[in-house]
Nucleic acid binder design. Structure first.
Lengths: 326, 326
DNA sequence: TTGTATGCGTTATCAA
DNA sequence: TTGATAACGCATACAA
């Protein structure tokens, strides 16, 4: 392994000059700088991360806590996250939480003990007192409404529902129904006020195992008319679509259906659906970008500048399952 | 951060004694050792990986190259791999290759430049000359038959086919057919000799897009009888199953069907199948174990001992789609 | 068996 | 602007 010292001798300067040039922050004589760069490239010099992280405060390693082995969503997020990190010459150390708070804490502590500058948690985002002491080393993906005490990436299904509602409203729909399986949404007065109370069906998550559960029929039983439905879950969408077809409805002209994906779901169409459903969801790329930015700001002094100030916002994926109200 | 030196003073010994106790290799006075452990735990001492990796030769970081964002198989492998690594106090740095050789090389070099002791490559496993120089730092998951020049984990679909054949033979089947989409298998004389030539259907991968392709009909057209079929691909299985049902066959009594999964597929049943198909595949846990073992042996002096010498072998997942021949 | 001293390859702090 | 030199926290060869 070639060291900074060898580069120094070859360039005829001291090692501290080399360090300055390579880190490029301090002012150096351009002529010398050129010499150093030349020598460095000739020797194929690669600074030792080991030494570098010992001498400086940072290891340039960022930990990421992943949920479990079925990481459909997380794999996309991880992919983008790693891509961004590598562009900034930082690397990504992973650890799985096994969907429990204890294991999540374990994973975080492990990553930190391994020298990570900080940790990005994509899972439960529990913020126990245990973690409170190292909160400035943690960025979480907060998918709920409850704010954590750590730096978090706020992404919520309520925002998605809101965006979906907005889109439908723009298309002229006034009677919009909500088929909801989220406690967080059903408690969020702000978003619920967008809907007529009668046009909301709340479905318990465990009730989904009942194959006879038919949200569409439940809605119709209320005797109200509606021209569009927002579902917070793909299974619910499937039920509604199938039911609508059985009832002889023509989609989307008779009924606009839109899926409002939770933040930790793909921003991609579900292959199990027989009907392509438009959806409102967060882009994993956007999330990764936002997460990286938060991490850089929290773990390092110099924040990532880039095209700044684009808050995390749901995107609309139009697969033609909504139509203007006529 | 509490250092080894503080532990030393508190325990009333020198720092080298502390180092010895904590690394547990050299002989130390049990009494002193106890003191040191006590002091260490009282101070919540956690050795700095940064310093440790600079002073010693190892960073205790192992890189893993993942294929792409759709990592269905790799996520399971990663999960198990990380679990094993963490048990041995090593951590897992990831990088994605984007399914090209160039990006794979990039990923490997990046991981190595970040100080990883070695890299486990789960993807293309190309072994260009470029990588040959650092072959002792690379373990690959070789899913083909072609041996790489680096340390590799040999896993092949041919082994799976062989195992499937063996299982069916044990059940009394003598006329076994093979529906194959793998070039590597169709060139492997050893395994093909298990089958009667007439009972082999080779399907080009791109031919799978043709919905009228019916391997079962092709087989039957050969005028031979057979009581069992081995498929090297889930799509093929689906075709065979559907076709068999249309022909009025009762599964599995009329026909045993078994899926011989390629090494880089889940060892889980595919949810897209309407019929549960038994399969022969590698367990991702086994693969992770084997990979970890190879990595430890290649990157560190002390190999992982554990229950040694269990070579990677396909497992049988019985979902009842095979029946004894009668 | 234990303690001392040196080195690992950088970054950071001083003088010059 | 540059160059010595001191950390960084630990492992380890060597001396005691």
């Amino acid at each position: 392994m070639t060291t900074i010292y060898e580069v120094a001798t070859r360039a005829g300067v001291s090692l501290s000059t080399v360090s300055r040039v390579l880190n490029g922050n301090k002012s150096v004589n351009p002529a010398l700088a050129e010499k150093v760069k030349q020598a460095a490239s000739e020797l194929h010099f690669t600074p030792s991360q080991k030494a570098r992280s010992l001498a400086s405060k940072h290891s340039h390693a960022i930990g990421i806590v992943l949920p479990n082995k079925h990481m459909l969503f997380a794999s996309h997020l991880l992919f983008s996250f790693e891509h961004i990190l590598r562009q900034h010459k930082k690397h990504c150390v992973i650890a799985f939480s096994h969907d429990t708070i204890e294991s999540e804490v374990e994973a975080i502590e492990f990553l930190l003990s391994q020298g990570c500058d900080g940790v990005f948690v994509t899972t439960i985002s529990s913020t126990t007192k245990h973690l409170h002491s190292l909160k400035d080393k943690i960025v979480t993906l907060s998918t709920g409404e409850a704010k954590a005490t750590v730096t978090d990436l706020s992404a919520s299904v309520a925002h998605c529902v809101s965006k979906a509602h907005h889109l439908l409203s723009e298309q002229g729909h006034t009677d919009i129904a909500l088929v909801n399986d989220r406690k967080t949404v059903s408690q969020n007065e702000t978003f619920l006020s967008l809907f007529k109370k009668q046009l909301i069906v709340n479905v318990e998550v465990d009730a989904l195992s009942d194959p006879f559960l038919d949200p569409l029929l439940e809605l119709m039983a209320k005797g109200e008319v509606f021209s569009a439905i927002i579902c917070t879950n793909d299974v619910l969408v499937e039920r509604v679509v199938n039911s609508a077809k059985e009832l002889g409805m023509v989609l989307p002209s008779d009924l606009s259906i839109i899926s409002s994906r939770p933040p930790n779901a793909h921003a991609e169409i579900s292959s199990s659906l027989t009907y392509n459903v438009s959806s409102v969801a967060y882009s994993t790329l956007d999330m990764a970008r936002a997460a990286a930015k938060k991490c850089f700001a929290a773990f390092y002094d110099d924040g990532l500048d880039e095209d700044s100030a684009n808050p995390l916002s749901p995107i609309f994926l139009d697969y033609g399952s909504t139509a203007p109200f006529s």
